[in-house]
Design a protein around this nucleic acid. Structure first.
Length: 339
DNA sequence: ATGCATGAGGG
DNA sequence: CCTCATGCATA
């Protein structure tokens, strides 16, 4: 009997992408803004920037054929394939990493050493520069007082039906520590940490938690993936998302601990997961170019994306998605530094 | 722990 | 097309 992965991605999704944050989000937004280079006085100057930057990035990408250079990393593409190998398909390996994954990897930081416009040379994007210089760099640094909706239509899992939180009869489903939950970043941070600690103490993996959420049968709440649980614990989700998930995870935690004490009602807290598939990967050189370009223009137009895609031998959609993801990453909650 | 991707919902 | 919440496949 094969267990078909019949997952029901309950739709919660972006309910409102409008300015629905009160003040916390403002911080995030502010952070993001300050990250951007002053989008002014650009004009033709940027054209040069753009050109040299991308040219350099591409040059770097092209030097993958150098004998050794740094002394690490050796690629193998950029060959003249009859196709467009923008993506590298790797074989799967079914890694049951789960949560307590003993990876000694320490992660490598990406200081993003933005090159200086001192470089010059190829005008690989000559046909791009013009349009970008005047047509794309019109960032309206406006922020017309975001009206705080006050109401919390977060609808974490309240997509289709009206997941009324607080039905008469069994109210107070999500027992938030604070009725008015300020959603303090510190608060969330603290909770995430405690959550992880207790989760580990229960000997439950992130994947297990995600799967177990469905057993809670909370309205609109299905199962989540290990990724999401992990991101929650590491606070790499948007503030909105964190806030929405907190009650759910807290509910699970309580139930799990209860089941732990009383072994008789929590067999669903364990789940096996089997996955098999492949993921497309963007090669390092291409990634570098993309990063360089992103630093200059986080929001390239379709035309620019198409041009970049062609230059890098990537599918346009891949490039577009890459930019989208970059934006999300840059925007993601990381306010644990500035309040 | 993260990268690339899908999809809903809003413009 | 974009933003956002999520997920699968990976390193």
């Amino acid at each position: 009997m094969m267990a078909m992965n019949a997952k029901q991605p309950f739709a919660m999704h972006a309910a409102l992408q409008e300015p629905k944050f009160s003040s916390l989000h403002s911080s995030a937004e502010a952070m993001r803004r300050v990250c951007l280079p002053a989008p002014q006085l650009q004009g033709n100057i940027f054209g040069s920037f753009d050109e040299s930057l991308l040219a350099r990035a591409e040059a770097l990408a092209a030097v993958d054929i150098v004998p050794h250079a740094k002394g690490h990393h050796h690629h193998h593409h950029h060959q003249p394939p009859p196709f467009k190998p923008d993506a590298t398909y790797h074989a799967m390996s079914g890694v049951p990493c789960a949560a307590a994954l003993p990876h000694p990897a320490a992660l490598a930081a990406h200081p993003l050493p933005l090159p200086h416009p001192a470089l010059d040379g190829g005008d690989l994007l000559e046909h791009l520069s013009p349009s970008l210089a005047v047509g794309g760099l019109a960032e309206p640094p406006a922020l017309p007082a975001p009206p705080p909706p006050a109401a919390g239509p977060l609808a974490v899992g309240a997509g289709p039906p009206a997941a009324g939180v607080g039905p008469p009869g069994g109210p107070a489903p999500p027992p938030p520590a604070a009725p008015e939950a300020e959603s303090d970043p510190r608060e969330l941070e603290a909770f995430a940490e405690r959550f992880k600690q207790r989760r580990v103490r229960l000997g439950v993996t992130q994947a297990d938690v995600g799967a177990a959420l469905a057993a809670l049968k909370l309205p609109g709440v299905g199962s989540l993936s290990q990724s999401t649980i992990c991101r929650f614990e590491s606070l790499t989700l948007s503030h909105n998302n964190m806030t929405a998930l907190r009650p759910v995870l807290q509910a699970w935690l309580e139930g799990a601990e209860a089941a732990h004490r009383d072994r008789a009602a929590g067999p669903e807290l364990l789940a096996g997961a089997e996955r098999k598939r492949k993921r497309t990967s963007i090669a390092a050189p291409e990634k570098r170019s993309l990063e360089a370009y992103f630093a200059l223009q986080p929001r390239p137009s379709s035309e620019k994306i198409a041009a970049i895609a062609e230059k890098l031998d990537l599918k346009k959609n891949v490039v577009r998605v890459w930019f989208c993801n970059q934006r999300q990453k840059q925007k993601r909650m990381k306010y644990s530094a500035v309040h």
